[in-house]
Nucleic acid binder design. Structure first.
Lengths: 361, 361
DNA sequence: TTGTATGCGTTATCAG
DNA sequence: CTGATAACGCATACAA
């Protein structure tokens, strides 16, 4: 039994002894001071800090059934979409007194499930951001405890959705106003709700503007995959592209530069997520969203669920908008951009850029 | 007592009843199957999964003193320096069976301490990345349980340091080879070990190359602060700058563009951390490091400490190197870059770029 | 190989 | 307002 603890932490009863009170009193001095005389509380607190006592939350959890922890699971921490979200969620949870477990599923549903199983007994609820698990599994989990989803539209569960539709509508309108007639959507992971949403938003908006629209899958939501589809895109007689995310757009920009296609003169490009700011060249026009807001909302939702006990079916949509920069311009007169092979410019844009960075949301 | 659990999770004794064995047997079926007959294990496991039983790790922790959790604290999750680090650390910990708590101190020592206190009884050890706490507090914590530091050089504690010296040496040599005679280091947060290291590395290398070197503090390690020091820098008769990090460099690039100073023709700029890839324009020459490696190392160090019980005084240095892109070139003939006021180019580089993103490491 | 009994640190119940 | 004590779910000596 007795583990060889290097530094046995003082327990509630150590403090009790020191303060000459019962363990119950010590407990109350921390969890419900209002039940005690102020003087008693001070006494206890005094001895507690002297001994370096800190409440053992695991033991408390065992007794109360409340852990004071939540878990946030993401498919890829390193995807720039998530850090602001994580940051906001963490801050919100912390403010409400909760600690947060972080799990990275590495885009793998099984791994996500494993993380869930490992954490489920230690937390009071989950935030699943861009979950890759099957709906069935998610619903299963939600019977055990509160779950809030981000960018996953599962009816019956509270969810925060970054509604790219408005932003994409604006993007397509922007292109239409510039006289583009035919555009391509370069898609991301099929399993991603965001991708489905974006694709159909582009399609609908294009239809409204009587534009022709085609879709090309990127192998992976990354710079490299974006660069790889360049030739395919150039063979399509389109004059503009909207991409699943900024990394794909970034790769496409590099690919176009290599082929000697001038952006935005010959071709227009619009990204999504706006995680690269203005730091691409030319500065990328992109559909932007406050992803930190998504994190904050999700945490708020989860915490209020925990505190009220009511599990709502909230469907919270977050606005997006178009940030116009320098990769969009009027459609070229000739329908198809010319394909003159050209030596790379001195700054071999992107050779070292974000290679391998994932970004499916 | 009995909390109104919405969904009372099955416990070890539920399983015991179902499988007609004792609780001890169920316990062993999960923690030490080798002590049981294969058949018994199967029986128990069967009923366990049928009931949806999952071991309560909090309870296990109470009994064994081992939580199976570690904590990683960072000053700012949204700083692109950390996500790869977090990702690697999380993966490493997960592989070893540990779950990880994530804490964001928001650059605030007190908040960091609060997080530590909240987590200390739930974890077996800490990874403190770029800790802002006083050395004293860190050492205090380390008496309670294993602590591994990242980018903080506290003797006596295991620590992983990204050794920018080599990279900075290369950077200064690079500038020297280009004929620069006088450079400025734009510094970051004074509390940061990294900043101290970088500043003195620049200073030493400059001395070796017989270059004049001055130092200018950026108000904050950010794009805006970098832009703000532009005039100061231009009044200094220097031809090159090395900045605390890429964001400051990025801001400086924008500031220089606004002032009509051509980079790299009139002025050379080198960043640190290489978190912007090639996505600035011109693509930024930067001192690069594998920050994911730092996360992996730290996690490995912590976990091996936990498993062997030996707390070493390891000081692990991680290599850095210079990635040469397009913001460095031979020094201009005239010592000082000309200061012709100019209208901003169409792409107002940086107006929307990473504003507010922090980046002190 | 398996079962019984006890303790881990805390909170809740019930008396005082 | 405070004290004694039984849980909470699990792991482990000890017994069988």
């Amino acid at each position: 039994m007795r583990p060889i603890k290097t530094n046995p932490s003082p327990t509630i009863s150590d403090v009790a002894k020191a303060a000459s009170v019962s363990t119950a009193t010590v407990s109350r001095a921390f969890s419900r001071p209002e039940m005690l005389r102020q003087e008693t509380v001070n006494q206890v607190r005094f001895h507690a800090t002297k001994l370096g006592y800190l409440p053992n939350l695991a033991a408390r959890a065992l007794s109360t059934g409340r852990q004071g922890n939540i878990a946030i699971l993401v498919p890829d921490i390193a995807n720039p979409f998530f850090p602001p979200l994580l940051r906001a969620a963490q801050a919100t949870a912390d403010f409400a007194g909760y600690s947060v477990f972080l799990g990275d599923s590495d885009e793998d549903p099984e791994r996500e499930q494993r993380l869930v199983n490992k954490l489920v007994m230690q937390v009071e609820g989950f935030i699943l951001a861009s979950s890759r698990m099957q709906n069935k599994k998610i619903l299963e989990l939600s019977e055990r405890q509160p779950v809030v989803l981000i960018n996953r539209d599962t009816p019956g569960l509270p969810r925060v959705l970054i509604d790219t539709v408005a932003g994409i509508d604006a993007a397509v309108a922007h292109l239409a106003a510039f006289g583009h007639q035919h555009l391509v959507y370069i898609s991301g992971p099929a399993a991603s709700w965001s991708d489905q949403q974006r694709r159909s938003a582009v399609s609908n908006a294009a239809a409204r503007h009587k534009m022709k629209m085609q879709s090309v899958p990127a192998r992976h939501p990354s710079f490299d995959a974006g660069r790889e589809v360049t030739s395919t895109v150039l063979n399509m007689d389109v004059t503009a592209a909207i991409t699943f995310d900024d990394f794909v757009a970034h790769g496409l920009l590099a690919g176009l530069a290599e082929q000697g296609v001038l952006v935005p003169r010959d071709f227009s490009v619009i990204g999504c997520d706006d995680v690269l700011g203005a730091s691409t060249y030319p500065a990328l026009t992109s559909v932007s969203a406050r992803c930190d807001e998504a994190g904050r909302m999700a945490a708020d939702l989860l915490i209020s669920t925990l505190q009220t006990g009511k599990r709502g079916d909230v469907r919270c949509l977050l606005e997006t908008w178009l940030v116009i920069r320098d990769t969009t311009a009027p459609a070229p007169k000739t329908g198809r951009p010319k394909l003159k092979k050209k030596v790379l410019p001195k700054n071999n844009l992107g050779d070292l850029a974000f290679t391998g960075t994932r970004s499916s949301v």
